[in-house]
Amino acid sequence: MHISEGVLSIPVLASGAVLTVAGVGLGLRRLNIDNLPKTAVMTAAFFTASFIRLQVGPSSVHLMLNGLIGIMMGWAAFPVILIGLLIQALLFQYGGIINLGVNTLNVALPAVLFGFIFRPMVMNPKTSVCSVGSFAVGFLSISLTALMVCAALLLTDPVSYKLAAMTILVAHVPVMFIEGVIALLCVRFVKKVKPELLRDALGPPKPTIEPNS
C-alpha cells in the first residue's frame, strides 16, 4: 500500500527522498546504452503485472512483485520502482510526488536486500532449494515493505497513527503469503521458459550488432 500525500511529516519525507536518491544513483550505475531499453520495458511489465488483482474474501489485493524485481534487477530496482511509482502518481494519482522518495524506498529497499540474500538460493538447480528461496524473497520483501510503511507512519505520529499502522501490517499478512506463492510459481515459470532472464536480466545483450562497425 502506498502512503498518500499529506500524511507524513517533513523529516520523514526528506529522509526518504535522500535515501531514494542514493539508491537510484547506485541503480543508475548499472544501466548503460545497451540495457536501458530493457530496463524500461521491464519497468512497464512489472507495473502492468501489478494490475493483476486476486479476490480475497470480499476485498481484493493487487500484486507488488518487488521480490521478483529485486532478483532480476538488483540495484536497478530503485530506478525501476521510482519510475513505476511516478507513472502511477501521474496517471492515476495513486501515491504521490512529494512522498515518492518514501514510497520508492519502502518498495525498493526490501527488493534489493532480499534479492541479494536469496539470489544464490533462487539460482540453485535443486528445485526444493529454489522453491524455498523464491517463496522467501516474495514473502519477506512485502513483509519488510509493510513494516517500513508502518515505521514511516509511526515516525510521523507515534500516537494517532499507531492503530492505522497496525491495521496495515495485519492486513498485509495474507498478502505476504500470496506474494510468496506468486514469486515461487513465477520463478519456476521463468526458469522453464527463459532461464537466462533470471541469470542476468541486465547483462550484455547478444552481440548481434557492433555499435562501431
Partner: peptide
C-alpha cells in the same frame, strides 16, 4: 496469475 506475470515479463 503467476504464469500471467511470467509471460508478461518473458514477452
Amino acid at each position: 496469475a503467476a504464469n500471467l506475470v511470467g509471460s508478461l515479463v518473458v514477452r
